[in-house]
Design a protein around this nucleic acid. Structure first.
Lengths: 287, 287
DNA sequence: GCCCGGCCATACCCGGCGGGTATCAGCGAG
DNA sequence: CTCGCTGATACCCGCCGGGTATGGCCGGGC
């Protein structure tokens, strides 16, 4: 009655994302006719229309939208199960470490807290091996969901903690990072409004899921690149306090009085029941 | 490379729970040899030993434990996707309601808050149809996870909110419910220690997942049954304040000064993105 | 010590289903 | 009206999931 094989989910998601059977089939590395049949069978089995195929192409029905969202979550859970099982499996092999953990951290984020955490945990008796996995902009959540990571350092309000268990580790204010010579660099403090429209110094725009919000500032996908652009007096950026650690001589940092505080959490999938993970969390909350 | 079909997960979970290929096959309605092969294939594909088959029968390896936990979560996610898709699908049919929602509530819990919520929501413009689904003792979480429900009323500290988004709705104290004639019934207040060992009046024990904790008190699985046993002077029980609503003349309620407060939340799967659900949550938080 | 019974693995067979190619059918553009 | 695009249909094949029969291993009972 249920059935719903993961293959069918993969197929449907491909079609739902492409809204085009031919392209979806190509993406899946198969021919189009079997894909059409598979979707038809899926619709028959669920007793529900998932796609509207009319003259204007393919579009999602309400049920299709639901299955797209829920199916993505389900597929993530399945691949997470596979990945985590493979990881645990290595532990039984000769030479494998018991309870290896993958910790996702924002690439380029402050290393101070991370260092303290790793050092403190390594000192614990029976500590597991921790693999630190730098993640792209704000994708720690996806890595936890699809099993690439077991635990993550996440930063409110940039990451969403929805669906995870978490403990608060640290709160910090934010600073504006300006070119050292800029007039505003002499100020004791700034407000968000101040930095949002500095003449000839637009705010940098970070890549979010591969796309950029429209705006005047330069498009950034790398911290070094941003540091350089600031040093050259071409842009300004907002960072948590701990970013001071990597500032250059050509940079100036000014506290932002009204920027929302950045709260660093350690987060993990709610259903986790690993002793190694529990130990790491305990260590983290004691810092 | 990933593969991992849900059928294989079902198979493995059956074997992992039974720790016996024959019984697992019977439970799955199939013969034992194909099941053995499927598990072997699964192990080969994951590159990991999941089960130890030695002279003393079958036992789980570390990787097997991981796959059991993670696989259950993944299977729940898959069946949730199927169920929710079927539900949404009905909405497109003639006569079907748009955005039907299933709300899980603890069977026998206070109806006061629930009534207020349903009434207030029904008065909203464009309100969806709400199906109220009474759930067994504290299994609202499972119902959210496997898609039987879309949203639930949960009671801290009895339900775990881990993995869900939630909003707090109400906090109440707890009371001891005693036979009306009992000496302690005259007291203005009691402590937990007071009710835990009243001579000849043991605390009732609720069924938890079909089993009972060992203890002297009667085994309860039904509120009416408990009410009767209290009225007969055979037991005592602890309830949230709102339980006063259904007390009988033969019952006496005494506030417990040191019992943890019961906090009612409205909770939903973290990834939900339904307008009907959003409306219900908005209504609930405004109560 | 031997036999038996329980249990998982292996061997072998079959039918269905997943996937491929060729082709049709609707529809919009030119 | 025709052509091109796209999804559906028709038909075929090979593999895999599932069944039955049986083997190998081990532990317990007589």
């Amino acid at each position: 009655m249920d059935a719903l094989e993961t293959r069918e989910l993969r197929y449907f998601i491909a079609v739902a994302e492409e809204l085009h059977f031919g392209r979806a089939a190509e993406r899946l590395g198969m021919a189009q006719p079997p894909l059409s049949r598979a979707i038809q069978r899926l619709e028959r089995r669920l007793g529900v229309l998932l796609l509207d195929r009319d003259r204007h192409g393919v579009s999602l029905t309400g049920a299709g939208e639901t299955l797209l969202h829920e199916g993505r979550a389900a597929l993530d859970a399945v691949t997470a199960a596979a990945r985590r099982t493979r990881r645990t499996g290595g532990a039984d092999r000769p030479g494998g470490r018991r309870g290896r953990l993958v910790l996702a951290v924002k690439a380029g984020a402050s290393h101070e807290l991370l260092h303290k955490l790793l050092d403190a945990y390594a000192a614990e008796p029976g500590a597991a091996e921790i693999e630190v996995l730098p993640s792209g902009t704000c994708e720690q959540g996806e890595m936890l969901r699809d099993g690439r990571a077991d635990v993550a350092l996440m930063h409110k309000p940039f990451n969403s903690l929805a669906g995870f268990d978490s403990e608060e580790l640290m709160t910090e204010g934010q600073i504006a990072v300006l070119p050292a010579g800029h007039p505003l660099a002499a100020r004791k403090s700034l407000s968000l409004a101040d930095v949002e429209d500095i003449p000839d110094l637009p705010l940098a725009r970070w890549a979010r899921h591969g796309a950029y919000r429209p705006g005047p500032g330069p498009e950034i996908h790398d911290q070094t690149q941003l540091a350089q652009l600031i040093a050259l007096g071409r842009t300004v950026a907002v960072f948590p306090d701990s970013a001071r650690a990597w500032l250059w001589a050509e940079h100036a940092a000014v506290p932002l009085v009204d920027a929302p505080p950045v709260v660093t959490h350690i987060a993990w999938p709610a259903h986790s029941r690993s002793v190694a993970l529990a130990g790491l969390i305990r260590t983290a909350t004691r810092l």
